[in-house]
Amino acid sequence: MSRFQTVLRGVVLALGAVVFLFPFYYMVVGALQTKPDPTLAGAFPNPSNLSFDNFVNVNERIDLVSGLVNSGIFTGGVLLCTVVFGLLVGYALAMLEWRGRKATFALVLLVQVIPFQLLQIPLYVLIARDYGLADTHLGMILPFAINSTAVIIFRQYFLQLPKELFEAARIDGAGELRLLWSVALPLVRPALVTAVLLTFIGPWNEFLWPFLITKDASLQPLAVSLANYISTVAASTDNPFGAILAGAVVLAAPVVALFIVFQRYFVSNDLGSGVKG
């Protein structure tokens, strides 16, 4: 390969990284600016114009801690259901022979392509009106409870385990739950991390569903309370963008940190298998 092509490739990739990262850098800078500075100079932090005022301001309008707690409960509930029930069905799909296994797997694949937001009306009628679960964490969690992509990842990893191991343990009289818990689970820990990462971003970032179902501000996840702040009250503040960006930093930081720390579990091969089935 010619030198020119190598340089060109480096330039394209670096330019890509700047385009992807600059808005995040700018988010942090904007959140720390006491007075908004939309000029080019404002993109470089000026120590005399930096403070945490915006975080205090946004916290006065939307309770950041309660927003984070609600996001945490929403996400935690989904993670718990996905890990428990997802592992069970993933194990059954990979390791057990039963009637309906193929149909169930086809269903897991099918569910992935159903545009979820198009179900907003019937789900709203059912969950908010018929089941009376509006303004509850359960109502928030229910439509997201088991992430089907995670199920596919679990199945994929279980399929790679040596069958003999399980046959031997079965002969020793171990039950399937015991096999799943003490033989299979320790072997698929990386899949668990990948599935948790992938599942995490769904509920943590979700806006439409919790927005539809929570009117009570004290129950709203941070994405919803921040969105409400952006669309309604922001205009009445001195530095609306500063306050909005401060809220955005609080919402984005946990996910970004998680994906940087665990980046090696979020590589293309796991996902490839997840999406291809």
């Binding site: 808005p23 939309p38 943590w204 806006f207 952006i230 963008f241 955005a248 919402l251 996910v255």
Partner: peptide, 19 residues
């Protein structure tokens, strides 16, 4: 750096684009 926008909440990133 390429997948950071993907994993971040749209509500948060929209804030920067508004700015």
């Amino acid at each position: 750096s390429y997948y950071v926008p993907y994993v971040t909440a749209s509500v948060a990133v929209v804030a920067v684009w508004l700015f």
